[in-house]
Amino acid sequence: MSIAFLIIALVTLGSAAVAMSLRNLIHSALLLIASWAGIAAFYLWAGAEFVAFAQLLVYVGAVSMVVLFAVLLTRQSRVDMAIAPDALRRIVAALLAGGATLGVLFGAVVSAPLPIAASATPVTVSVRQMGQELMGTHAAALLIVGALLTVALLGAIILASTGREDPPGVAPPAVAPPTRKTS
């Protein structure tokens, strides 16, 4: 196993773990960016360059900015930063549930009858090949993802919009209430 993988894994896991335990949200977000970058490095190491760049663009570039904006838009008071009385209980429960999951997953991975093949000859996927796949085999999925992203962004805008009423002075909409002829 290459040293590179170990370093990548340690950096990723470490920064993720610290990010999840820090109290300062800004620090958490920055560490998470490091973790995401680590995952991108893993993709590079595994030979999936395109995915690595996608990861960088989407997570390190875009999602992190959204997260930072969200953090800044929702500034908390000092009181909120204090650990609430029930937090300890929740943390214990979380550690137990997470630990159980981790144990189960590790056990499953270790005991799984996976082929202990020496690293197979690396498969390389050129961007051209990917483009053809995207536009050919997976064209429908691509379209659906496009629609999904559009809808998600519209939904996000609607959710986050203030929904304030029209400023005073603007006339009400010109549509008159429907009137019907009686008989």
Partner: peptide, 20 residues
Amino acid sequence: QLCLLFSSALFCVGLIGALA
């Protein structure tokens, strides 16, 4: 398997964070 262990660990970090 190493890769899977790595991803499992990351998954649990995320899970614990989300839960805690």
